[in-house]
Nucleic acid binder design. Structure first.
Lengths: 176, 176
DNA sequence: GGGGACATGTAACGGGTTACATGATTCG
DNA sequence: CGAATCATGTAACCCGTTACATGTCCCC
């Protein structure tokens, strides 16, 4: 439901082509809303049809970059969506389902998986902390723009930390 | 990808009909893997075709309950899946996208939404803590079965707590 | 001019969501 | 009987994923 809005946001920050958006996604919004290039192209085409964005007219056919910019209707759409009320979605994590399954089956050892998860979350956490140290130095970030961007990063940090502590607790004693 | 396995787990704990599973989901596995009754019926039909579960033969047609039980092949499938390696999925949360959008737009006030989210997470956390106090009293839960079930609940508690603290930090000072 | 990297696009499938339809059961 | 409720099921649509195809550009 929010892929088009993530794209509008990214295009407002900086207009660009589908491929550029795909690359940028890998390093920013993508941390909380991943998307493949096929999804992105499909959404861009749909949004252009709806009149939310405009793609540069093309001379050549398929292989030439199309540069997109956000139209007034697109900005309105994003404002409406961003301000609207929405329920937080329940988490959806299959490792929890696996724990329940292991509890019922009784003969599945989840410790290796728990270790793997812990390592992944530790790496992600370190990555986020590096970004924070680099982009949001100590007392800065009182301004609206930076403050909100920092908040997004803080969320990533908080969740990875929660994951990490939970894995440690799970592995702490006993066998799985 | 894990709905069928969640259903197998639930059916192993206790065989039952589609409607019963839908109700049980609302109170247990559904906290981490929600599903509507349509999804559940579709999956059950598919799993029966694949020979993972067996539904009681029916006299009447549509409106009669079908009782399902797990077959040996279904148990095997669940064991294989539960023990396999799998990457943790990146989180997917549209409130983060809305924060990014607000940062770009500059004139969207997210404070009301942040308050709403905080309340939702506070209620969920209290609910989980109540369940923990009731079902996992103090020093208990050293056994495998209970220990894993407790770990799932602990994850829910950890994440709600992380959300709550993050909302407080966001609302702490400044205007959004 | 031919090979490789890059940008866009098509096709097919499965899961998730919503709306609606139909058969059974219960109870007034 | 007739209304309400419950259990199952059908249909349509969109999103996410994977595999593959086609066109352009660049550089040797």
């Amino acid at each position: 439901m929010s892929l088009p809005h993530a794209l509008l946001t990214s295009l407002l920050e900086q207009p660009g082509s589908g491929a550029e958006l795909a690359r940028r996604f890998d390093k920013s919004i993508g941390y909380f809303w991943a998307a493949t290039h096929q999804q992105i192209y499909r959404e861009l085409a749909k949004m252009e049809r709806r009149g939310l964005i405009a793609g540069a007219e093309r001379d050549g056919g398929r292989g030439r970059a199309r540069h997109y910019t956000v139209l007034a209707a697109g900005r309105r759409e994003l404002v409406d969506w961003a301000g609207a009320a929405a329920e937080p979605r329940p988490p959806r994590d299959d490792f929890m389902v696996r724990l329940r399954a292991a509890a019922v089956l009784g003969d599945v050892d989840l410790r290796p998986e728990a270790v793997r998860h812990r390592d992944v979350h530790r790496r992600r956490l370190e990555n986020y902390l590096d970004i924070e140290a680099r982009d949001f130095p100590a007392g800065a970030g009182r301004e609206g723009q930076l403050r909100l961007q920092h908040a997004v990063l803080r969320a990533g940090i908080a969740f990875e930390r929660a994951w990490l502590e939970w894995c440690d607790e799970l592995l702490g004693d006993g066998s799985a």
